[in-house]
Design a binder for these strands. Sequence first.
DNA 1: GAGTAAACTTACTCAGGAGTTAAGTTAGCC
DNA 2: GGCTAACTTAACTCCTGAGTAAGTTTACTC
Lengths: 196, 196
Amino acid sequence: MQVFSKRGYHAAVVDEIADLAGISKPMVYLYFGSKEGLFIACIKREGELLTHEFQQAAAVEQGADQQLWAGLSAFFAHVAANRDGWVVLYRQAPEQGGEIAAEVERQRAAVMAAVTGLVRAGITESDSSAGLGEEDAEFVAHALVGAADSLTGWMADHPNEAPERITLRLMNMVWVGMRQVLAGEVWTPPAEPVEG
Amino acid sequence: MQVFSKRGYHAAVVDEIADLAGISKPMVYLYFGSKEGLFIACIKREGELLTHEFQQAAAVEQGADQQLWAGLSAFFAHVAANRDGWVVLYRQAPEQGGEIAAEVERQRAAVMAAVTGLVRAGITESDSSAGLGEEDAEFVAHALVGAADSLTGWMADHPNEAPERITLRLMNMVWVGMRQVLAGEVWTPPAEPVEG
DNA sequence: GAGTAAACTTACTCAGGAGTTAAGTTAGCC
DNA sequence: GGCTAACTTAACTCCTGAGTAAGTTTACTC
């Protein structure tokens, strides 16, 4: 994870990974078959761990907003403690082909589905759904995950910021806005085009 | 750009790039010196173009929200028309070392600074600054850029969605929330810890 | 403590791809 | 027609790094 995160898949050298793990290269091939196999194992573990922690945290029966809060808190806590894994999973894996791409897609979709589910719940929970539907849930989920991802970088620059505080800030940015939108308050752009 | 975007820096083969450009490999080396030089040129152009378009759009004198709206619209329009460039700049470049990392960092910082500037303006423009400060501006800017990045993926799955509509959705998610927070409405988490 | 299987290492092979060299080819110009 | 500039083609060198083969240590059994 550490090496893949720092160097990227292609630039990561199996020898370095083996050294760092305190074993020799042939052992890596014995255990994982190939570099690709090793990488897939990394992604799989990371994705499943993250999804599991997120859903575990969000599973408690309560309002959708609080579930989302719990899930995001778990997410940030996990990433803060384990930045490499997230970087590998979300930032650099997608461009590879074949089996790797497939596994990454699977793990990512799982994360996205979990978030989308909570957002959807938040929308339908509101009485006045204000015309927001499935597409909006997906949109918000994408934006949320992207924001969270980017904030992992911000978090690295602010090591004293607790994951809960980050979640709180993010919830205030997003959820309060969504609630307002659901309540009918909408921001609108200027009527005429701003520039030719 | 196309090849770097599809394959990633390391897996990109100079021969393929040359073929696609309709020139021969030695010419690539004549013009750019090395693969790294070529890549840096790509990043530089992309970053400067994007920053320029964003700032151009946001430069018109008006409310900070409308400036942000204009800037984000320009951003989405640019990325929609030129996905490869964004992918190269934001998603895969950072993990390389040396000169590449330096240039990427420079371009990214420029984008981030532009966004942060507008968010900061939005905060100070409000009468009741509600205790939000520079750190909050940076936080929101990070979240915004991350969301925008992630939404470029969503956009690729929804080709009929106009960039302006995406911006509108995003503005409604973020700005309305921020306005509410500035006005004093705050979302708070459950009092007791959700899980042990 | 010899025999042996499992766990491991050292030292290799071999392919792919960055970067180069050299010998053309084409177009424009005097 | 010869000269130059801008290129191409195609072969090459050389290095890095994935994957492997053969040998060596460890640990366990009788």
